[in-house]
């Protein structure tokens, strides 16, 4: 068993697919559009449409659907809590009763759409990270935020910080795993005792981890400096971002999909349901 393993979200999977080749700005904007669209989705049929989009993304990125879906795993617990809360505390037409607990028709609908929405949000964010190298991602973000630099906001430093943070996620998980194992080998016990005792038992994990992070940061700063990095100075790029026709088309296609999905959700599905009910 590995006590701590790196989360699958945030892990770039190198590739040469259509989606990998899109401009990171395009992918970031696309993800924002998708998220907005998801907030407007409400019905189960609508989520079927979104699922179809996910299938399309899988085909266009060359990443297996299973791997894409796995990026939703870290939030499964959160999704479960959301679903249960909505299921039990939504007033409306009663479907079932279990002692003081009432499950309503509205509750089922709300719970399922909330849960699915949350899941899809995380999966699409994961999709962005899986197909965009951290460097390209922070480059893209830097360019999108570049108007802010007119207000003296340090966008390029922020982007560099993000690159480094993403680079160190796997390393830090590995280190945490090692420290955890080392302290368990010295008899550390994280399972018994009251809350206070348990909280205290994490000190032997947190202190070494902080020490390590600060040491790493210091060494990295020296290494970056020796590699001619000067904060705030103009840097060039090996792969300058290039907005191509396919970026525009991809974005347009996606926007159309979102509008279509919202239209379906608001009018089409409701009309079909109403028509079915009349029959």
């Amino acid at each position: 068993m590995r006590f701590m393993s790196a989360p699958s979200i945030g892990q770039f999977i190198p590739g040469e697919s259509f989606i990998h080749g899109l401009d990171p700005r395009c992918k970031i904007v696309a993800t924002v559009i998708l998220m907005t669209g998801l907030f407007m989705a409400s019905g189960i049929p609508d989520f079927l449409l979104w699922f179809c989009l996910l299938l399309l993304c899988s085909a266009l990125s060359g990443i297996k659907l299973g791997v894409i879906l796995r990026s939703g795993r870290p939030v499964l617990f959160l999704v479960l809590v959301t679903v249960v809360m909505n299921l039990l505390w939504t007033p409306g037409t009663e479907l079932a009763r279990l002692g003081p607990l009432r499950i309503t028709r509205e509750g089922v609908l709300l719970a399922s759409s909330m849960g699915l929405r949350l899941l899809f949000l995380v999966i699409f964010a994961g999709m962005l990270m899986m197909t965009t190298s951290p460097m390209a991602f922070s480059d893209g973000l830097e360019r999108i935020m570049s108007p802010l630099s007119l207000l003296r906001f340090p966008t390029s430093e922020m982007a560099m910080m993000m690159t480094i943070a993403l680079r160190f996620i796997p390393t830090l998980f590995e280190e945490t795993d090692r420290i955890l194992k080392a302290q368990i080998s010295r008899g550390a016990d994280f399972e018994s005792g009251g809350i206070l005792r348990r909280a205290r038992s994490f000190i032997p994990i947190l202190v070494p981890l902080f020490v390590l992070v600060f040491q790493r940061a210091e060494n990295l700063a020296v290494a970056m400096e020796s590699r001619c990095y000067v904060p705030g100075a103009r840097r060039s790029r090996m792969n300058p971002l290039k907005w191509r026709g396919r970026d525009s088309s991809a974005l347009a296609g996606l926007a159309l999909f979102v509008v279509f999905a919202i239209f379906c959700d608001r009018y089409l599905f409701k009309a079909i349901l109403a028509w079915l009910a009349m029959r």
């Binding site: 460097m135 680079r167 790493r216 970056m224 001619c228 103009r234 060039s236």
Partner: peptide, 28 residues
């Protein structure tokens, strides 16, 4: 330096190699 983990800035091999020349502002 001693520990390679302390010197690698980017997540992808070629992007990391490019870090120094990018800092020099060289053309692509």
């Amino acid at each position: 330096f001693q520990n390679p983990e302390d010197q690698i800035v980017a997540s992808i091999v070629e992007e990391d190699v490019a870090f120094g020349p990018e800092n020099l502002g060289l053309p692509p």
